[in-house]
């Protein structure tokens, strides 16, 4: 699965970048995330409870930041094991660009994921649907959290660039 989307955030680039590197914010925004803690400079442990179609499992794994170019882009690569449910592997590249006239940052991200084991056998197509939903939720949450918009007043438009 590959999904690429773009969203405009009414904040400055540096502020968005800092939030993207804040494990507390990341944990808060990731649906089902129970643990997200640093284990090094650019590595995190995570535990995430996910329900995909007939499979409900707790995924544990590590996420690493690579190709970090502050304050404009990085790539998250990670893998999580869900016991007999199988595993998820993937990466997300996030790129930030500031619009020149206004204090608006354009965030473009692309997510690629592979699943294995029971997750693949019992409904890869459900998994990818769920992964899209999770990506949507994460980035929507992220914008709301960093814009301090808990009531959802801000109109957030995720513009899809690629979805295969």
């Amino acid at each position: 699965m590959e999904l690429s989307q773009r969203v405009e955030i009414p904040l400055g680039l540096v502020q968005v970048w800092q939030s993207l590197n804040d494990p507390v914010i990341l944990k808060q925004c990731l649906p089902g995330c129970e643990v997200f803690e640093p284990i090094g400079d650019s590595e995190f442990n995570f535990t995430l409870l996910a329900k995909v179609g007939p499979v409900k499992a707790r995924f544990k794994g590590e996420i690493k930041l690579v190709d970090v170019n502050p304050p404009s882009s990085y790539t998250l690569t990670g893998a999580g094991k869900g016991g007999v449910a199988g595993f998820v592997k993937g990466f997300a590249t996030v790129r930030l660009e500031e619009k020149t006239e206004e204090t608006v940052t354009v965030m473009t991200y692309s997510v690629k994921a592979n699943v294995g084991g029971k997750l693949a056998q019992l409904g890869a197509r459900l998994v990818f649907g769920a992964a899209r939903k999770m990506a949507n939720e994460f980035f929507t949450n992220f914008v709301r959290v960093i814009c301090n918009d808990p009531d959802g007043k801000l109109e957030i438009k995720l513009e899809t660039v690629k979805d295969v």
Binding site: G53, G117, A120, G123, A124
Partner: peptide, 11 residues
């Protein structure tokens, strides 16, 4: 990657 995608009667 060699994952079986048709592993149940759903697929």
């Amino acid at each position: 990657t060699g994952q079986l995608l048709t592993g149940s009667y759903m697929d």
